[in-house]
Simulated assay, not measured.
Amino acid sequence: MASDQGARVTAAVLIIGDEILSGRTQDTNLRDIARYLGVHGVDVAEVRIVPDVIDEIATALNHLRGRYDYVVTTGGIGPTHDDITADAVAFAFGVELYEHPDILKMMQAKYELTPARRRMARIPTGGGLVQNPVNGPPGFTIGNVFVLAGVPQIMRGMLEDVGHRLKGGAVTVSRTVRVLGSGEGVIAAPLEAVAKAHPGMSLGSYPFFSPESFGSNLVLRGRDPDEVEATVGELIAALQAAGIANVAEVEG
Rank of each mutant, 00 (worst) to 15 (best):
G136H: 10
A121D: 05
G94E: 06
L148F: 12
V145Q: 03
R156F: 06
K105P: 01
Q131H: 14
G75E: 02
N144K: 06
L180S: 09
I77S: 01
H81M: 14
K105C: 03
V130W: 05
G169L: 03
T176Y: 09
T85E: 02
G181A: 11
V186H: 12
N135I: 05
G75C: 04
K105R: 15
T74C: 10
T73A: 11
G76N: 06
A189K: 14
E99M: 01
T125R: 15
S174N: 10
S182V: 09
P137N: 13
G157A: 01
N144A: 07
V162F: 05
K167D: 13
V186I: 13
V194N: 13
V134R: 10
G128T: 15
G143E: 06
V151M: 11
L148C: 15
G183V: 01
A88N: 09
A90M: 07
P138N: 02
N132A: 13
Y68C: 08
L129I: 11
G78L: 03
P138F: 02
Q108M: 14
G169T: 02
G78F: 04
L159C: 05
Q108Y: 08
V71M: 01
V72T: 05
S182Y: 11
K167V: 12
V95H: 09
L97E: 00
G139H: 03
P101M: 14
I84H: 09
K110G: 08
G136R: 09
V130A: 06
P101L: 09
I142W: 05
L104N: 00
G168Q: 12
M107Y: 05
G143R: 03
Q108G: 11
I123M: 07
A170F: 06
E192L: 15
G150I: 13
P115I: 10
R118L: 15
F146W: 12
V171D: 00
A86K: 07
V177A: 08
G163Y: 09
V145K: 05
P190C: 00
R118V: 13
V179L: 07
V173D: 10
P124K: 00
G183A: 04
V130K: 05
I142L: 03
G76K: 07
P133Q: 11
T73W: 10
D102S: 12
P138Y: 05
G169H: 02
F93G: 05
A193Q: 12
L148H: 12
R122A: 08
